[in-house]
Amino acid sequence: MEYKFPPFLTTVLTNLLKRKSTRPYPYQKRAPYPEVRGILKNQVEKCIFCGSCSLKCPANCIEINKQEGTWQYKPYLCILCGNCEAACPVKCLTHTTDFPLPCLEKKEILLKGTPPKRKQDKK
């Protein structure tokens, strides 16, 4: 077999002279893009407990109790699709740009707020 210069060797050698492409993660954190869907947060004081987020959720990870004013969210079921955020009429649901961190146990998030009074109750 006749000897040929392996073509990839030039790429490998020039790569040695270039900047590193590794992102040194735990030492240097990259700023997240503003559009990223991360952890789901609910500003419970704004929430009206209408239930549209739990209706639109494809994974059924949100449960709402209208009478008691509780908003229950299961982060281990959530698929971060952003449907609830789009469905929320008062814009109290937001995805932060931080990604969810690993945890040692599955925890639920239970938020309690005051449900808006119905019109009959006001009278």
């Binding site: 490998v12 559009e35 990223v36 869907r37």
Partner: peptide, 30 residues
């Protein structure tokens, strides 16, 4: 050909960055 494997996956990260910036997720863009 391990070094070629790494080369292609390094190029691929650029497209995932485009996805992440424009659609909000790296792979399942929704």
């Amino acid at each position: 050909f391990e070094s070629l494997f790494y080369h292609f996956w390094r190029i691929r990260e650029k497209i995932l960055d485009i996805n992440e910036k424009t659609a909000g997720n790296r792979i399942i863009v929704s």
